[in-house]
């Protein structure tokens, strides 16, 4: 292996690692706030990328129907609750947010032809379609069991993952898609070409991480999430609603997932079931961070990306064996150095 190959592999590992890092951040965030191990995180990657690809192909993405269906379901549940509790004034707002907004979005998609729009608008549309699914999933699947054990929440996640995979196959078919790159710029380093898109992935990841940092440090919602993560009961006593915090964290997770998908879909082909393995590797990063520390989780995720890249060069058939076996000593080291407090 000469230097050039080593550099190329390193670059590849860091690009993938950057995506894993984003997902790791989202997983840490969701877990810290809600105790949910959000296995369907990966599905948002696939949904984001494939929704964008559908828009570009001039097709109506299936996620529209999902959004409409879930919105209606929530509207029905919330309205009946409001009716029972005689909170009549809230009903119009409920209907508007949960049914009206998705309908408006669907109507817009019908009226205009998304394929002819400029790329940034398409990306925005795709995000608008996918991101609301996050809080909706929280409302429907997790909020009713928000107080259950981590194990039960995990199993709900597994069930949600199974459902979303099925929905993905139904909406997008078994074959994958790619989207055109945001930029065609290439750089030459020695003999090798460096794609602009690769750099874009890294820059965007870093920017997103910085943005999250400011969100948590500077904004009231960010602080509310941190408070909930530190102590749920305490936060509640301070007037921070657990449900609101949950919804907010799921919105962020969905946004990060969908955005990651849109970032990498010009570099690789995304399938309806791509998300699981990508999410799993993000999860590995998150765990290395102890499901608590953002910087360590990001570092862990980049480590996974690098391990993967170098092992795919040396023994591609055994790539996963190598990656996952090497994870164990890292876990052991982390486990012994992290002061672990047992939860009650």
């Amino acid at each position: 292996m000469d230097l050039q190959i080593a550099l190329l592999l390193g670059q590849d590992g860091i690009t993938n690692g950057a995506i894993y890092a984003l997902l790791a951040l989202a997983l840490v965030l969701v877990f810290a706030v809600t105790r949910v191990i959000f296995i369907p995180q990966g599905e948002f990657v696939a949904f984001g990328a494939l929704t964008l690809a559908s828009l570009q192909a001039g097709k109506l993405p299936g996620t529209v129907w999902l959004l409409l269906a879930m919105g209606t379901l929530i509207a029905v549940i919330e309205s009946s609750l409001a009716l029972r509790e005689r909170r009549f004034r809230e009903i119009p707002l409920l209907l508007m947010v949960n049914c009206g907004a998705p309908l408006l979005l669907a109507g817009t998609l019908f009226a205009i032809s998304p394929a002819s729009l400029p790329l940034p608008v398409q990306v925005l549309l795709a995000l608008m379609l996918v991101v609301p699914l996050g809080p909706m999933i929280y409302r429907l699947a997790y909020q009713p069991v928000a107080e259950a054990s981590v194990l039960v929440l995990l199993i709900v996640s597994v069930a949600m993952h199974v459902t979303l995979i099925g929905i993905g196959l139904l909406f997008f078919g078994a074959e994958g898609s790619r989207t055109p790159p945001f930029t065609d710029v290439t750089f030459e380093i020695g003999d090798a070409l460096l794609q602009g898109q690769t750099i874009l992935v890294m820059v965007a990841s870093v920017l997103l991480i910085v943005a999250l940092y400011f969100f948590f440090e500077r904004t009231i919602y960010g602080k509310a999430l941190r408070a909930t993560a530190m102590n749920r009961t305490g936060a509640r006593l301070m007037g921070i609603s657990g449900n609101l915090a949950g919804m907010l964290s799921f919105t962020l997770a969905a946004a990060i997932g969908a955005f990651s998908g849109i970032l990498i879909s010009p570099l690789t082909t995304i399938y309806y079931d791509s998300g699981f393995l990508i999410g799993l590797k993000g999860f590995v990063g998150a765990i290395i961070g102890g499901l608590a520390s953002y910087p360590v989780a990001a570092a862990g995720a980049i480590l996974v990306g690098l391990l993967e890249s170098y092992s795919s060069f040396h023994a591609s058939a055994f790539k996963e064996v190598i990656v996952f076996t090497l994870i164990i000593p890292v876990l052991l080291w982390r486990s012994l150095t992290t002061r672990h407090v047992e939860e009650g």
């Binding site: 999860f283 765990i287 996952f324 076996t325 672990h340």
Partner: peptide
């Protein structure tokens, strides 16, 4: 020897391997 959340991930790791 893994404590807390490290253990289930450990099982995922060797399960995959």
């Amino acid at each position: 020897r893994l404590s807390g959340h490290f253990l289930p991930l450990g099982t995922i790791a060797w399960g995959m391997s």
